[in-house]
Design a binder for these strands. Structure first.
Lengths: 108, 108
DNA sequence: ACTTACGGTAAGTCATGTCTTACGCAAATA
DNA sequence: TATTTGCGTAAGACATGACTTACCGTAAGT
């Protein structure tokens, strides 16, 4: 839950979503991520920092490289936040549909 | 899925998240939403426009007022996007845990 | 020890986003 | 018809955010 706030902000940026989607295919270093994106390598580093703070990725040193991979913490926090509203949303939708039906049949 | 992109951007803003959470409690008009937030009513209108474009809320006229409520479309799109990575994230996490265990027991 | 490869951070620029006040339109009320 | 209430939009100020280049530290290879 604590991660949910920053996770939404993190995934709001299209470049960061691309980084995240790429990491879903498997771990990768910064250089690998940068070549496949239309931005510079430092930009990717900055994006990774934000993704990491949101609990969406984790990293580990591997020689001179730094390998990033998906972290389920942030993802789980977002799911929990969304699920909190899912039932409510469906109820609201059902109620709205019924309201519309009543309107059309009890038309003035 | 089409809504997923804009839905993440929409919920990235804390004020919009508060509006959304308030609507989860039940439908409300713009004035009602504005008094309970530290921003002006026009600001709330602008936020609602963004939430609506993201498929997160819907609105209907009710006399001179305009009642907003949660729309499951955007929420569903986000869930679908997240679920797409959920299994992958858990696998990645499990693999990382195992890798760590191997590292500590095969220590140099 | 020197070089090469990799990556994080600093500083600055430019684009986006969020807010405000001012205004105009539509529906209900007197 | 005149007034009130509720909303949306326009215009502009201000803060945030995303990118660039330049730089420095660290780990491996020669």
């Amino acid at each position: 839950m604590s991660y949910a706030n920053s996770a939404f902000s993190a995934l709001a940026d299209p470049t960061r979503r691309r980084v995240f989607e790429r990491l879903a295919l498997g771990p990768a270093a910064v250089v690998d991520l940068a070549q496949g994106l239309p931005v510079s390598r430092p930009a990717v580093s900055q994006h990774l920092k934000i993704l990491k703070e949101a609990g969406l990725v984790s990293d580990r040193p591997e020689g001179t490289r730094r390998v990033y991979q998906i972290d389920p913490k942030g993802l789980g926090a977002m799911r929990a936040w969304l699920d909190q509203f899912w039932a409510v949303a469906l109820d609201a939708y059902a109620a709205e549909v019924e309201r519309q039906e009543n309107l059309t049949q009890d038309a003035p």
